[in-house]
Amino acid sequence: MATPAQWIEGARPRTLPAAVAPVLVGTGAAAYLDGFVWWKALLALGVALALQVGVNYANDYSDGIRGTDENRVGPLRLVGSKVASPRAVKTAAFTCFGVGAALGLVLCATSTWWLLVAGAASLVGAWFYTGGKTPYGYRALGEVSVFVFFGLVAVLGTTYVQAERLHWTAVAGAVAIGAIACALLVANNLRDIPTDRETGKRTLAVVIGAARSRQLYAGLIALAFILAVLCALATPWALLGLIALPLAARAVRTVVSDAVGPALIPVLQGTGLTELLYAVGLAAGLALGG
């Protein structure tokens, strides 16, 4: 049986900024529209965190039973390392999905029905990323999913449930957060190219190769900061998002320097912290501008 510490490590806490960041930016955009509602923001955060941990456990389960995690470099895999049974990890994943769904239903009851559709799509997307007979994460579509669900859906949904309307700054923030979240996945898959090729896992990094993956990572990070500057057209305070630029530059420098394997692990942490710090700055800027 896995220890509590192993369950926590298996939840991959370093990925949690990808859940917190879109809620921060979405809430900042709602505040810009004078629509901030604190308890709805907390509910949205609960949904995002539950889904993030759930998808981490789901990926652990699905990759583990396929044998693609047996020689993986990086955080502990519960099933791949045989410290927890596949059934236990699958149960943990669906428990998290259930918590996220319950909190999401509360939000839907206070807003509009289309959020129910978005939530259901998020749950389906979370499971079939690596689950099912033909997981789309094995078909080079992982980055698209991350952009849609951890960028557009999470940010715009958070804004709408609070302000009940949207603004172009929310869209810009959603694209920016989606871009950084994609960059995080690109770095992860860049690190795993050798083992993914051996096991037949066709991630985007495997398809386009290491060199183009490095270029894609740098481009996604650059896009996020360009959008922060664009948001300054609405309020100069949006430039607070640039506080994450030094941290992002360090991660980009490592990626484009042809780092491989374990040398890319700090990039994952750096990209996650970049996303969180960027979100704090942009959210604060939008709120102050409002």
Rank of each mutant, 00 (worst) to 15 (best):
I208L: 14
G35M: 02
P22E: 04
V206S: 06
C96D: 08
P13K: 04
A287L: 01
V55G: 11
G209S: 07
C96T: 03
A218I: 03
L239Q: 06
V124Q: 07
A279F: 09
Y160C: 07
R66V: 08
A50Y: 10
S122T: 15
R12H: 10
A2E: 03
G28H: 00
I180R: 08
A93W: 15
V73W: 00
L277G: 13
C182S: 10
A126W: 09
L103D: 04
Y61F: 14
C231E: 05
G200V: 11
L233F: 11
A120E: 04
L233E: 08
R191H: 00
G173A: 14
A174F: 05
A211S: 12
V106K: 01
G131H: 02
T274N: 07
W168Y: 13
V267E: 04
V186C: 07
C108Q: 10
V153T: 15
V175F: 15
A120C: 15
R253E: 09
L107K: 08
F147N: 02
G119I: 13
G200Q: 11
L184Y: 14
G26L: 04
N189F: 06
R77T: 03
R139Y: 06
V55L: 15
Q269M: 15
R72Y: 02
V148R: 12
W113N: 01
P266D: 11
T169R: 00
M1N: 10
A228P: 01
F128Y: 15
V53R: 12
A19H: 01
K90N: 12
V117K: 09
L116M: 11
D192T: 03
Y57E: 03
V256K: 14
L43Y: 07
C182P: 01
G100T: 10
W114L: 08
L184T: 14
K133T: 09
L242R: 04
L245F: 14
Q269T: 15
G151M: 06
A228M: 03
A30M: 10
I243H: 08
A2Q: 01
T68P: 00
R197Y: 08
L242M: 09
G46L: 05
L276H: 08
G178L: 14
V260K: 15
M1D: 11
A163Q: 07
K82W: 06
G104N: 15
T199F: 04
V83I: 07
I208K: 13
G10M: 15
Q269R: 15
T203R: 02
V99E: 05
E275W: 12
E198R: 13
A5S: 13
S145V: 05
C182D: 06
V73G: 01
V25K: 04
R197T: 10
A174H: 04
T274A: 14
L230S: 05
A183H: 05
G261W: 02
A174G: 03
V207G: 10
V171Y: 11
L156E: 12
V260L: 15
A283K: 12
G64K: 02
P236I: 07
L220G: 00
L239H: 09
V79N: 01
Y136W: 11
A140Y: 04
L216P: 00
L230P: 04
A93M: 12
A263G: 02
A170S: 11
G132Q: 10
T235L: 08
S213C: 05
I180D: 11
L45N: 03
K40W: 01
L220N: 00
D192C: 00
V47M: 09
K90T: 01
E164W: 02
L216W: 00
A210G: 14
A174V: 07
L116W: 10
E275Y: 07
V153F: 10
P4Q: 05
V20W: 00
V260F: 14
G272V: 14
